[in-house]
Design a protein around this nucleic acid. Structure first.
Lengths: 124, 124
DNA sequence: AAATAAATTTAAAATGATTCTAATTCTTAA
DNA sequence: TTAAGAATTAGAATCATTTTAAATTTATTT
């Protein structure tokens, strides 16, 4: 692991947020002002290919990166924020129902988060 | 509904495949040789905003469009082909477990389809 | 039916996230 | 201590998609 790879890995796994390349770049830049976007892309891809991090793609948003531990995501359709959630026994259940070789799954529940819900109510 | 909107809606809902804009364009062009990509994009977006069709985004692939009836997708990681599947009782189960307002969900099961599995076996 | 407004289509340029290329710098091993 | 191999950089290229502004079609009002 190179310096940048390690730093980027750390930034992603240490964050409670789900970071996009640009945010990773911003954080990294504080420590290494000369670093360049392509470096973040390169390393993020390297980490992803090595299955050390996970990529989350949501419509009309840049990809975000996350820890690899299997979990699911709630995506707020108002603010775009992601939240983690674990639906129990889902993997097994899916596994059983498909033909072919199961690899993994990607579940996003679209919802309106409690914060936005509240904000909407207040504005009425 | 305009002529193109209607045609495009029909192409998408009549197809057993999951079509990308380019394929829709190719089909439409046979009947209307002068039609242009932007028209397909415009109408596909209009239909999507009206919730008459569904958008399926998969990494590194152009968006594909589909009927709106709720169902899930198997995505083959070898050939990229999508197949429909219905996991029973999933909606209810998810609905119950989130905070906030449930809107919908998007589930993709990544797998190796039986065809590719067979092909791999034959090549060994 | 003519005139006006509104919506759709077109063509081409712009966008924006991401990837690629080639040159440069850094690291490792012989 | 030089050669080979990686990683980084800068900037151009890519590609799906969106935007713009002009042209055309459709609908509405007088």
């Amino acid at each position: 692991m190179t310096k940048y790879e390690e730093e980027i890995y750390h930034i992603i796994t240490a964050s409670a947020e789900h970071l996009a390349v640009e945010q990773i770049y911003d954080i990294l830049k504080k420590k290494y002002p000369k670093v360049v976007m392509a470096t973040v892309y390169n390393n993020v891809n390297k980490l992803w290919k090595a299955r050390l991090i996970r990529k989350i793609s949501v419509e009309n948003m840049p990809d975000r990166y996350d820890r690899t531990v299997q979990h699911d995501h709630l995506v707020c359709q108002r603010c775009g924020r992601l939240r983690d959630i674990v639906f129990e026994d889902l993997t097994d259940s899916l596994h059983r129902q498909i033909g072919g070789e199961f690899l993994s799954y990607d579940l996003k529940v679209l919802y309106i988060c409690p914060d936005c819900k509240k904000r909407e109510k207040d504005h009425q």
